[in-house]
Design a protein around this nucleic acid. Structure first.
Lengths: 397, 397
DNA sequence: GTGCTAAGTTTACGTTCAGAACAAATACGC
DNA sequence: GCGTATTTGTTCTGAACGTAAACTTAGCAC
């Protein structure tokens, strides 16, 4: 109701549509933009011109060979960048991500122990200072996005609880903003992973999708509802790992029993395979053909419990597809038929048969892309907001 | 991306904002509209003028007594109506609902047996014919909305399965459209109930809310996500009743075991109270103080299982509030402390403490309001779409 | 080289909203 | 009862924006 209006709001929308198209769907010809945005050639020309003047896009010669006047390619300017930070139990990963989703740099800083908030800030500041030359080549550094493994209030930027980091009731946005001298946004890591997969990954193009990620810390996820990420009242939505599946099951650190993540669990999987916790990456190799029975049994058990959880979520969300990442992706790969069949059969009235199960497409860049995307959001909806820091729209090589 | 643009799209948005405000928030002064819609007096004047010419709103003299020029009240024209139909196992209920949410008429036609689709259509046609005089006084009859207790594909208007009605894979929109000679839309009853409660009921004003309704047929519900109803890929979202809570529990008619609606169940409640199934309405009276232990135990058991289900949903959606209707509302009323405490404690990290539990505010009119709302949706987003059937904007009494 | 085709560019025009100036309608103070 | 302050509706002008049509450009095909 209280949305802006006026004729320049229309311009904002159209600038947003063009920039978002260039960002999400890669370099596009102007002619394609005309179709995609449902605007005339003249308007697209004006919009691209303005975005170009703002330094947000640049044009290159046409690539296609075709009859008729060539239509230049419109690129999102990858020199407009966001910083992305992912503090984790054993490392702080910092990335530089350009508009268009390109990860220019990814620096993983291993820590001897679980980093405190101060340490995470200091590490980030040090890494970013090391990148200063590189960042000087960027047209804009829009801000920093934080992917935090825990409950993050996206409005206030306060971490309510990040159990594995030991952070609680801590303002994370403030310290990073002050240390780096740029706007900061924070959100739950799995929520940002959902965002990344829905834009550049396996869920690209789907308007109703779910993402679940399994790691040593448990199971997190997120939902895309009508093309928009599900945030909830404060950004805490998507805690699929604490869906109770068996009220009389194993106790969970959350205080309840039989949560999805106590039943479907990386640790248990590594145990039966005989791997150390540090070898999570090798899990997939260890799950080749000809597995001993106890391993098969555990995979089967976890697959079946996971299917119950997914079926519940299908009943709740009626999604078009579900993306599985981390060891849940390994589970899917190791016995896709079983999981697919169980998810097809679980939800009521065969609703599950219409759901596609896909493995996550983005790898180590997932959280960096997602965190950067959270920073880009404002620019994408209000391209003119960058005007204050306007520079010449230098076109890269 | 493929949204329309152009300057008259802006007008559409603003007309929609004004009409929606009048519809949802009752009669408003023009001055209030200026604030709510963030538009100038001149623009609001033009918009109200156009809506008035379209017959969608009318103005009356100012009601408030205050310094300054009086600002006229803008009313959504309640003579612009939608028909609403709710076929159920023992009756077909037909309603006439005006813009603004007023239920002008509600006619419950009891059936001897479960009505077939043809019977439901014929009953509706007969009832509507009987209302012809009344409807002739309406400026517009926009269409008919169908609240169906089952899985409804909202895009195609096909009922995939309505177990209690025995309908399956049946196009319901077509027959109603043809029989009544007006546009028809169909959706799941609980989804429409969610819509109604979120606009005119207990969830009004909340952008992230859940609704769960319990009846003899089971538990259904819906979600409001960011102010918008959650539909899912095909409109099947919100089947909360078939969330598996105990995989080794009682078998459910859906084929699985331990679904929420097999554990939290009206029939079991009536059994311990000693009431017949037909007496569901008297359930609340029977649950006064001083209940025998077996009744208390069953109430407690169902409350605790319900709390698990609600906690799961809080983890998933992070809603601001949850609305409970039907016998779930009775459960809430009978032991609000227990349920509130359990929902506060269930979700991770005290997320539940921020969730309000409310009983549904709309009574017998719930589904009629919701079904009508589904019809109004198009008019509210595109007020000019009514132009073809334009008439004089007669103002009621 | 000529013609065809697709697309960028320019221009005239219509729609829409904001803002300012003005008019209207009411309460309040005297 | 009258003037003033206040609030809001109304009218008019100007600016922003997108569309449509005419024109121009650039490449392919023959």
């Amino acid at each position: 109701m209280s949305e802006r209006s006026g004729t320049e709001d229309l311009r904002r929308r159209n600038l947003s549509a063009v920039l978002t198209a260039a960002h999400r769907y890669g370099p596009l010809t102007r002619a394609t933009l005309v179709q995609r945005c449902n605007l005339t050639r003249s308007t697209i020309g004006a919009l691209v011109g303005e975005l170009s003047a703002l330094g947000l896009v640049y044009e290159t010669d046409a690539a296609t060979v075709r009859v008729g006047r060539p239509s230049p390619m419109v690129h999102a300017n990858e020199r407009v960048v966001a910083l992305a930070v992912n503090p984790d139990v054993d490392a702080v990963t910092v990335g530089v991500v350009g508009l268009g989703g390109t990860v220019h740099r990814r620096i993983r800083y291993n820590t001897a122990s679980v980093p405190s908030l101060d340490e995470a800030v200091n590490i980030t500041r040090a890494v970013v200072e090391g990148l200063s030359v590189e960042l000087a080549g960027s047209t804009h550094v829009l801000g920093v996005g934080l992917a935090v493994p825990g409950l993050v209030n996206v409005d206030s930027g306060v971490v309510r609880l990040a159990p594995h980091l030991g952070w609680s009731e801590a303002d994370v946005v403030g310290p990073f903003r002050d240390a780096l001298g740029m706007p900061a946004v924070a959100a739950n890591d799995a929520t940002l992973g959902t965002l990344a997969e829905s834009i550049f990954g396996a869920a690209a193009g789907y308007r109703d999708a779910l993402y679940l990620n399994g790691s040593a810390s448990g199971i997190g996820g997120g939902a895309i509802v009508g093309g928009q990420p599900l945030g909830g009242a404060s950004g805490y939505a998507g805690e699929f790992g604490h869906m109770v599946i068996r009220p009389d099951g194993e106790p969970c650190h959350c205080g309840r029993r039989g949560c999805l993540e106590t039943e479907v669990n990386l640790e248990r999987l590594l145990d039966v395979v005989g791997l150390d916790h540090a070898d999570a990456e090798q899990l997939e190799d260890a799950l080749g053909p000809g597995l001993p029975f106890p391993v098969l049994r555990e995979i089967r058990r976890q697959t079946e419990v996971l299917a119950i959880g997914l079926s519940n979520l299908v009943n709740v969300f009626n999604p078009q597809m579900i993306v599985l990442g981390g060891f849940l992706g390994v589970l899917l790969a190791s016995d896709k038929e079983r999981l697919s069949a169980a998810v097809a059969a679980g939800p009521i009235s065969g609703l599950g048969t219409e759901v596609r199960l896909e493995r996550a497409a983005l790898g180590v860049e997932l959280l960096l892309v997602g965190a950067a995307e959270a920073v880009f959001t404002r620019l994408l909806t209000e391209p003119r907001s960058v005007a204050s820091r306007q520079e010449s729209g230098v076109r890269p090589s």
